[in-house]
Amino acid sequence: MARTSAPISANKPSSRTRAPRSDGVEARTRLLRVALRLFAEHGYAKTSTRQIALEAQVNIAAIRYYFGDKEGLYRAVFTESFGTPREIVEHMAQPGLPLREALTIFFTGYLAPLKQGDMARQALRLHLREMLEPSSVWQEELECDVLKPHAAMVALLGQHLGICRADDELHRLVLTVTGLAMLLFVQLEAIEIIRPSLIKKGAAIDRWVSRLVEDALALIEVERTRRATPSEK
């Protein structure tokens, strides 16, 4: 059984966060960035709020003001560092949206964190740590940012393929399509060694979006053809 590194109560609200004051946006941002790096490197239990505040060069009371407490800060770091898949789902699931446009929304949203440079690597490390040492935050992530987006993509591709009831092949197709985006994060360090120009600038990430949309459409078309071809007995 995986051990828990972040003893966060499952029944506790997300956090008692507050909108930053006009003079505190920079302080909140510094807290998030420093906390992301420290949580990713050392884990929840071994990272103190005093250490975070010291390196962010803010008063420790700022953590309480913006995030409620250490748990609230951890949740904010975990959810904000990789964007908000729930918003992506809402946009791509609009009725009547062409498939190409829906896929473009999906890949644009999921690859956006790569434009943050080193922060993307830290966010990935934090998510991998959560997968290996899960806390209640990972359970929330699994429900809201993994299962729901998967279900939305199943509905989207099922609709465009004319599939009324999802079967194993449709789920396999969806995992393959969404995996195209995840693969870039998994291979991030390898890409930086092999061909750093592929992810060095925002325009390069946008190029990946265009390429992955085309790849996804090709995979979907193969599945459409496969289903239309009578199987041999």
Rank of each mutant, 00 (worst) to 15 (best):
F39P: 00
G43D: 11
Y44D: 00
Y44L: 13
A45H: 10
T47V: 08
S48T: 13
T49E: 12
Q51R: 15
E55F: 14
Q57N: 10
V58H: 03
A61W: 03
A61K: 09
A62D: 03
I63G: 01
I63T: 14
I63H: 04
G68S: 08
D69Y: 10
K70D: 00
K70E: 01
K70Y: 08
E71K: 05
Y74T: 00
Y74N: 01
T79Y: 14
T84Y: 13
E87P: 03
I88E: 01
H91Q: 15
M92Q: 13
Q94F: 08
Q94R: 15
P95L: 11
G96H: 06
G96Y: 06
P98K: 05
R100E: 09
E101G: 01
L103I: 03
F106Y: 05
F106M: 09
G109H: 08
Y110S: 02
L111E: 02
A112Q: 09
L114N: 01
Q116H: 15
G117D: 09
Q122F: 06
R125I: 01
L126S: 00
H127D: 06
H127P: 04
L128H: 04
E133Y: 11
S135T: 05
S136P: 13
S136V: 07
V137E: 02
W138Y: 13
W138T: 05
W138N: 12
E140T: 09
E140M: 11
E143T: 05
D145W: 06
